[in-house]
Design a protein around this nucleic acid. Structure first.
Lengths: 217, 217
DNA sequence: ACCTGAACACCGTTCAAGT
DNA sequence: ACCTGAACACCGTTCAAGT
């Protein structure tokens, strides 16, 4: 292998390669040695650019979180904003199911997450929600998205489906079953979101301050 | 060390010791060697009783899931049943926060989980919900519990809190902050649950079959 | 500055051997 | 049946050394 004049490695290249491995092989299959191998480099070279494996995963998680769209909070339609944020959030996780456990587990001190949280909170307060409720609505919505992502994407990598396949093998094949599970998951998420928003709608008329009024921090 | 006449090890003892380590040191700190060490035994002895480390963790997860109370579904008050199931479920996870990532990630083919799922589904159908809605309500509630457990218990082991502590060190100490975070999490969970149930209440009057009528499987 | 090669202290799991 | 001790093929991370 020819020694390159310019550096092979960079933080961004390492992050991209790590995401590719996680997406392809799963979170448990990511190792620094494999990562180095795919980049055509020795393991220890990675440590010139990243502090630790955890560091790499945080980078990956940050990248994914950056694709979550919170722009709808710039309007005053809080209901639509929460719904579109939640759907965008869920879609971002669905695009990289294998990393969800890390993303959900790790503390939310990732920059991208904090910035999104600010947008959500600000948007809700701007729409008349008291700050305390804005915080709770943000947290609740996150629960729904994370919970949905965890339980639905976790399924199917191994388990559950097989149980039903064995039991009802004559009824439907695995492929149809997987599609069915995906539909149930999406529908359940949408139902929860709609019911939650319906409930909030009625609460809003009781607790919201008139729009435009100033709220204490 | 004296060689005992009767067996030292058993599946139950291994499971109990594993849970103790996970609760005390965290999921990442559980290793077969440490487990063996605490049981006063060599690593390889464990493999006489369990097939794999994953096997041990599934046992632990099953134990925890067995403490979830679904007895409220024996009544016809579906709203109270869902609420008390959700709270019991969340409490069970709160009692063993470190294992939540495993519990949430692993496919739900654990026996205890499946039996609970049956009780929930049956109870909702008995209360007049069409089977399709019963499935979705069960899934949605699970999302909320898992999401709440993941995001709230994940925080605090490292991260987030520290950020605020550094920033607002003069405002409050870490202890008060942790309490505050716990309160926010509980309140957010309760808000989401109430709003969800409020939404469902109105839906119920539109889609439910008269109680006592027979539903197709 | 960037990468190498060897080493350290760990893993989960297996297996022949002892009692 | 139950446990031991050694081994295998892995980990993440460090560090002196090369260019």
């Amino acid at each position: 292998m020819v020694r390159p004049i310019r550096p092979i490695l960079s933080r961004a290249r390492i992050c991209a390669a790590a995401l590719a491995i996680v997406d392809r092989d799963g979170l448990g299959e990511l190792s620094m040695r494999k990562l180095a191998g795919e980049l055509g480099v020795q393991v220890s070279s990675l440590y010139e650019h990243v502090r630790t494996k955890d560091d790499v995963l945080h980078d990956v998680a940050n990248t994914i979180m950056e694709s979550v769209d919170v722009s709808a909070f710039e309007t005053r339609d809080w209901r639509h904003a929460v719904a579109s944020w939640a759907r965008s959030y869920r879609a971002a996780l669905a695009a990289h199911p294998h990393i969800v456990p890390f993303l959900a587990y790790g503390p939310a001190r990732r920059e991208a997450s904090l910035r999104r949280a600010d947008a959500v909170h600000g948007g809700l307060v701007g729409a008349g929600w008291p700050p305390r409720y804005a915080t709770m609505i943000g947290a609740s919505t996150k629960y729904l998205v994370i919970g949905s992502a965890m339980t639905s994407f976790a399924r199917g990598f191994e388990g559950e489906a097989q149980v039903y396949v064995e039991r009802y093998a004559h009824l439907m094949d695995a492929h149809r079953l997987r599609d069915h599970a995906d539909t149930i998951d999406r529908d359940s998420f949408e139902l929860a979101l709609e019911m939650f928003l319906d409930g909030l709608d009625r609460l809003h008329t009781r607790v919201a301050t008139p729009q435009g009024s100033v709220e204490g921090a």
